[in-house]
Simulated assay, not measured.
Amino acid sequence: MIVIETPRLNIRKYTEEDTAALFAILSDPITMAFWPAPFSSRQTEEWIERNIQSYITQGFGRWAVELKDTGRLIGDAGIMKSELNGSVENDLGYIIHSNYWRQGYAYEAAKSILSYALQELGLARICINMPADHAASEGVAIKLGLNKETEYRNRRNRDILTCLYSTF
């Protein structure tokens, strides 16, 4: 089921049938370089299961990002309740396969999801976090108009310096 449609993307709910295509993305070491480690097949299955459950309990989650013209899954984006710097936040995240970097897909997905979260879901505060050395992800947050709130050591991601951006 398509949740959001953009000029080039369909952003839709996951199904269990997405496991193989998502695993190809989340297991790629280049794509996942800013994460603690690439995902295993089981971690990918758990990711999908956790998000399907989140659709039921929260009304949102991370979604499949696919190219509108081909239907090819190229990434993952959406909002999860996550602990960021000691507080539970509405965490907007995006992972685009490295083959599709520098083409504006992360921004296109994130912009539409941010608008959906604020207008349709009525969420008051949205955060984005990324490693301090992840310039492309930070660029997306800045382009979206979010403000840098703080930097902190992220114990969930190798205790690396992490930037936290928010809508206020």
Rank of each mutant, 00 (worst) to 15 (best):
S87K: 15
R62V: 07
G71L: 04
P36L: 10
L146G: 11
A106G: 04
G139H: 01
D91Y: 07
T150H: 11
M130K: 10
A37H: 15
E149S: 14
R153A: 15
R156C: 06
P38N: 08
D76M: 05
R42E: 14
K13C: 12
R50F: 12
E151L: 12
N85Y: 11
K68A: 00
P38D: 06
F34Y: 15
E45P: 04
T150F: 11
H134W: 08
T44A: 04
Y165W: 14
E149F: 08
L67V: 02
V88G: 05
C163I: 13
L121I: 09
T15V: 10
N90I: 09
A24F: 05
G71C: 05
M130W: 06
D76R: 03
T150P: 07
I52D: 01
L22N: 06
A37I: 05
Y165D: 12
P131W: 08
Y107A: 01
R50Y: 09
G139D: 02
I30D: 12
E149I: 15
N10V: 00
G59Q: 08
G78F: 03
L146W: 10
T57Q: 13
K13N: 09
H134K: 08
P36N: 09
Y165S: 14
T70H: 02
S27P: 03
E83M: 14
G139Q: 02
S98W: 09
Y94P: 01
A21Y: 04
E138W: 07
E46C: 05
K111N: 00
S87T: 14
Y107F: 15
I74D: 01
G145S: 08
N157K: 05
E138H: 11
G78L: 02
I4C: 00
M80H: 07
K13H: 11
I11S: 00
Y116T: 05
Y94E: 03
P29M: 09
T15P: 03
P38I: 06
Y107Q: 02
N157W: 07
G104S: 00
S115N: 10
N147I: 13
A77D: 00
S115W: 02
S137Y: 08
V65R: 01
L161M: 13
S115D: 11
I52K: 14
D18L: 09
I126F: 06
D69Y: 01
V3P: 01
Q58H: 14
G75Y: 03
Y105G: 00
A64N: 06
D133R: 12
I96A: 04
W63L: 03
I74A: 03
